[in-house]
Every structure is written in C-alpha cells, then in structure tokens.
Amino acid sequence: MTTTAASVAVLVDGGYELAEGGRWVDGRYVYVDILSGRLFELHDGTGLAAPRQLAALDVPLGAVAPVAGRPDAWIAAAGTGIALLTADGALEWLDRPEDRTPVPSRMNDGVADPAGRFWAGSMAYDGTHGAGSLYRTDPDGTVVRVLDGLTIANGPAFTADGTTMYLADTAAGTILRCRVDPVSGDLSGGPDTFARLGDEDGSPDGMTVDDEDCLWVAMWGAGTVRRYHPDGRLLHTLTVPAPHPTSVCLRPDDNSLFVTTARYGVTNPTAASGAVLGIPVPVRGAAACSWRGGR
C-alpha cells in the first residue's frame, strides 16, 4: 500500500542543507543540519513553534544522543570522531578515529542503544568505496571500531530489547541486520543482509523501529519512506514531497512520524526540501535512548 503526500505537513521550512538525525528526547524533537554543524530542538510537534538552535559547531555534526543524568549534555558523532557536547557548545573529544583513515572522512548518523552504548557510522567525503566504518562508544568512553568496509554507514536502529541492530550502507543500497550481545555489545557473527535495494528504489538512509518491531527507512533519492516487517517483507511505502528524505522518528506519545529532508543535490528545491515533515501514522515509536557514560 502507498500513501501519497496529501497527508504530509511541512512542520519546519528551515532551508537546511542536510537535515538528519531526528530523535524524540524529553518531550521534544531534536535534529541536526549535518554540514553546518548545527543542533536544533522543536518543542511543538504541530509546527506552531519555531525550532531553537542548541549548538553550532565548527565541524559537521552527524547525530547526537542524550547523556544519562545530564539534561543539557549530548554525545555527538561530529567531525572525525565522538565527543561530549555541553550546553555551552564546548566539545570534549573521546576519540577521533577518522583522523587515522587514508582519505578525508567524517562521522555520519548515530544512536544510543537500550544498554546505554552509542553507535555511529562514518563515510569518506568523496564517497570512496569501503572507506566507512561503524563505531561503538562504551559507557567508559572507549571508542571501538565494530565494522569496516562500509561506504556510507547510516541509520543505526535498534529493537526495544537491544538484541538486533539495523544498519544501512546507503551507497551500496543494502540494509544489514546484526545480532548484538546486550551485555558486551559484541556482534554475534557477521551482519546479515536484511534488504537489498535497486537503483529505482532509492538508497536507504535514516531508520527507526516502531512499537510493533517493524523497521521504517528513509529512502534517499526516491522521495519515500518504507516500512518493513521483521521478516523482511515490505509492508508499506509512503511518498513524501521531497526527493531526499534523510531520517525518520516516531513519537512515543502520539501517532506521528517526523521526517527530515535535504536540499543537498536537489536542482529545484521546494519548501519540503531541507525541512522537517510531519505525517500521521497508525503506530508509535520510542524515545531516544541515552548514553550511560560521562565524566
């Protein structure tokens, strides 16, 4: 079944170059504009309130997750690594592993898992094949490379029990499924291919899991959002009025889907490109998990 754009509302027409990383945190919607290094929050899901800028960094900002016990602090996939971001905008670097790669690279999307670890992917600026990695930041601040050989690591998304992680390699057109040990954070065996997309389908970008354990995927280049059953069946395709949707977020307290989009690479952008969109849906999601570390 396909839903048209008739039910889609433009909540924030911000003209963002590459809005991404939408999460529901403490009763507000939080998202980034990657290339400008900015972090925003939106308190009113109806779009009546303007977004508020929380931080502006001098490096790209891929995604953030809240830090447990520190309401104004974030763990961030930023620049070439992982950092703690305080309310005054200061960065405390935990590690910058992409400084040690052979091609210029940056961090991309990231999310905290139910056990309190932070997972984030990377990519080369020029899209070099196989140059991207997936990193895990443990509560003690240690940053571990978990997977390599990816091209554009995107959209880590976890099931509620934390035992399954979905990971998109956007450039390869694949969605991987990994089994995760909830205690150690180690992956059990190699990733399985959950879905393989053709050029006509678009490229998988940001993802989230709903309260029925189904996976929602923003499809860059196709102007659609897909919903998959845990067994891999495509259940639903939702059309949005922007060619590059980048992330998806389901409110836990309302049947609403938030979708960020990009102006990047769009020849004739409209108000829906580089925006935050709101769409009524029949399911709900979960609030963003926190990183259970800090100093």
Score class of each variant (00 low, 15 high):
294 G>F: 04
250 L>V: 02
146 V>Y: 10
131 A>E: 03
241 P>A: 10
72 D>P: 10
57 L>F: 00
206 G>Q: 01
4 T>V: 13
282 P>L: 06
258 F>H: 12
97 P>R: 05
170 T>F: 03
7 S>R: 14
166 Y>D: 05
293 G>C: 07
281 V>N: 05
116 G>D: 00
132 G>T: 03
293 G>I: 06
243 P>F: 03
113 D>T: 01
48 L>M: 13
51 P>N: 03
117 R>F: 05
274 G>Q: 05
225 V>T: 07
97 P>C: 01
23 R>K: 14
35 L>Q: 12
234 L>I: 08
126 D>P: 09
75 I>Q: 04
105 S>K: 10
151 T>S: 04
281 V>T: 07
103 V>E: 11
78 A>Y: 05
110 G>F: 00
120 A>E: 01
162 G>H: 08
187 L>Y: 07
87 A>Y: 12
132 G>Q: 06
290 S>P: 02
73 A>S: 13
19 A>T: 08
238 L>V: 14
129 H>W: 13
280 P>Q: 09
141 G>R: 10
162 G>D: 06
286 A>I: 11
92 E>W: 14
265 G>S: 08
96 R>Q: 15
217 V>P: 00
270 T>C: 11
240 V>E: 05
92 E>D: 13
274 G>W: 05
101 T>R: 14
190 G>V: 08
229 H>R: 13
235 L>S: 09
81 G>R: 08
257 L>F: 00
127 G>T: 06
123 M>R: 00
31 Y>G: 09
236 H>T: 15
95 D>M: 11
11 L>W: 08
229 H>P: 06
19 A>D: 02
8 V>I: 15
61 L>A: 03
127 G>P: 00
220 W>P: 02
157 A>G: 08
154 N>C: 00
74 W>D: 00
